[in-house]
């Protein structure tokens, strides 16, 4: 997830925007939307498949 966040951050940087503006004028909003959507899909896939982070805490708790 951290890697996805870094790549997303880099793809949403002004130099990339200027490149998009030069290559496809007027398509910048679509570019931002697509990048965020793709990142959400990847994070959802990664996060939902990973083991529940709270599970370890709950199972490790000794009986009262």
């Amino acid at each position: 997830m951290v890697a996805i966040a870094i790549v997303t951050f880099l793809l949403l940087m002004p130099p990339v925007f200027e490149l998009v503006d030069r290559l496809a004028p007027g398509w910048l909003p679509a570019w931002i939307g697509l990048v965020v959507l793709a990142a959400i899909a990847l994070v959802a896939r990664t996060a939902e498949r990973a083991p529940d982070p709270g599970l370890a805490d709950r199972t490790a708790e000794p009986p009262a």
Partner: peptide, 24 residues
Amino acid sequence: DPGHLTRASWALPAYLLLFLLFVL
């Protein structure tokens, strides 16, 4: 439950994306 953060990590960005969809 800290596990709820797993869902929020992608669902909240999705919420924000939908929220901003028609702003422009």
